[in-house]
């Protein structure tokens, strides 16, 4: 696993020796240009890893195209017939790609990660950190409603409502990013976080009710 270091781009000129043939290669090159052998992955941010611009406004299809495209190169299935060290390196690359994809494809995680990259991490992740009283009130009411819901239909309607709400907040997050209003984006993220958790809990309850 590589560290989530926020240094962008890295030092462009730095070189290293290919572990296999000794040729000097660019640190960022995943394959040696002389012998073609896979090199160790670099500690880069998730956007760089997927070869995507570090911004909130990304399309699902573009993220997937990058992710699948890169996995085609790095996945351990491509190295099954290679020596152990190459297999291990491919596994590291694939692991890093999976992690990057998990974060970047999920709008909330993407937003939070982006804010952290910019040195503006969204405050802690427990519910208790909701400081906006209106948001707090909303959270409590929704939770109560969910707790009281008995039938699958009731829960279903809560899920639908919460999900619609999530969509609306996401639009606001996107809008805040577009206007470079990062503090606002951070506040929306907090609301989105509890809404997402609520949706997951409602979803889970419905699943249990049906089972």
């Amino acid at each position: 696993m590589s560290e989530e270091r926020a240094e962008k781009g890295g030092s462009a000129g730095s070189m290293r020796d290919c572990w296999s043939c000794g040729t000097t290669v660019a640190v960022r090159a995943p394959f040696c240009h002389a012998c073609g052998v896979i090199q160790a992955p670099q500690p880069v941010d998730h956007f760089t890893r997927l070869n995507l611009p570090a911004r909130f406004d990304l399309q699902r299809a573009d993220i997937e195209r990058q992710y699948f495209g890169l996995q085609r190169y790095f996945h351990p299935d491509r190295f099954a017939a290679k020596p152990a060290r190459e297999r291990a390196l491919s596994s590291q690359h694939a692991t890093d790609l999976n992690e990057a994809y998990e974060v970047v494809k999920d709008p909330l995680r993407r937003a939070e990660y982006l804010l952290a990259l910019m040195g503006r991490p969204v405050q802690g992740d427990a519910c208790s950190t909701i400081s906006d009283p209106r948001v707090l009130l909303e959270a409590m009411e929704m939770r109560e409603e969910l707790a009281e819901a008995q039938s699958a239909a009731e829960i279903e309607s809560i899920v639908a409502r919460v999900e619609a709400e999530c969509e609306a907040v996401l639009d606001e997050v996107a809008d805040a990013f577009a206007r470079e209003a990062f503090d606002l984006a951070g506040r929306h993220c907090i609301r989105l976080r509890y809404l997402t958790r609520l949706a997951a809990e409602a979803h889970e309850r419905r699943a249990r009710l049906e089972a």
Binding site: K8, G9, G10, A26, R28, A29, P30, F31, C32, H33, G36, V44, T48, N51, L52, P53, A54, L70, Y73
Partner: peptide
């Protein structure tokens, strides 16, 4: 944005 350098497609 950083470009991934995948050298020599044949490789």
């Amino acid at each position: 944005m950083q470009i991934l350098e995948i050298h020599e497609p044949g490789e």
